[in-house]
Design a protein around this nucleic acid. Structure first.
Length: 193
DNA sequence: CTGTTGATCTGCT
DNA sequence: GCAGATCAACAGT
């Protein structure tokens, strides 16, 4: 399984969000391998996107989204939840990232069950804050290089056709809901719908 | 410095 | 379907 190259993230954020569907997120913890297929993403851009963290300029929290592509952007929200993004943008964009919303577990399911305190497979990683908890992703992973074989990276996965990707409004935000930058596939059985 | 809001999930009704 | 948990960024004083 090949790790996605830096150039993969060097495209328009919305394109990368679609391309990431079907790819595999891999996490290494103490010799354990935990992985899952990415089945839902959301694109967040910059000046044309009022819902993005970057709208309004760089801050201490979002500076990773302005940095080099192919890195992880982790943030803390609602007082108790972490979410992961992959920094991705084209050359003419100053900032952008793809939120990983949902996974289908592949390896390390027992580990995830312990983290999430449930045995329900379909409930392990089917939400942005759930998957960070299941994969033990915290602020320590802020800025991790996803193109190196480190403790967190993304590899090639299943081939998903454009026709199998569904676009819709992004979830949980009130701004820019006219932008259909939420992408998911119904190919896998574990999706909740 | 203070108050409000939020890219969420859980548990209860 | 709805409130609550709980904190970092931001706008306003």
């Amino acid at each position: 399984m090949k790790i996605l190259a830096r150039s993969f993230y060097d495209q328009d954020t919305v394109d990368v969000a679609q391309a990431l569907i079907g790819k595999i997120l891999v996490r290494k913890i103490n010799g354990n391998t935990i992985s899952g297929v990415i089945v839902e993403t959301e694109a967040y851009r910059y000046k044309d996107d009022p819902a993005s963290h970057t709208y309004g300029g760089m801050t201490g929290r979002n500076q990773a989204m302005f940095g080099p592509v192919g890195r992880a952007y982790v943030y803390f929200t609602y007082g108790m939840h972490y979410c992961v993004n992959a920094v991705a943008k084209s050359q003419d964009c100053d900032a952008g990232a793809v939120l990983l919303r949902s996974l289908v577990p592949l390896q390390g399911i027992d580990f995830m069950s312990v983290q999430r305190n449930t045995c329900d497979i379909s409930n392990l990683t089917n939400g942005p804050a759930k998957l960070t908890q299941a994969l033990m992703i915290t602020k320590k992973e802020y800025g991790e290089d996803l193109t190196k074989k480190s403790s967190l990276y993304i590899t090639d996965g299943f081939e998903i056709k454009k026709s199998e990707i569904l676009a819709g409004p992004r979830i949980g935000i009130k701004k820019a809901i006219d932008k259909l930058w939420n992408f998911k596939t119904t190919k896998n059985v574990f999706e909740e719908n």
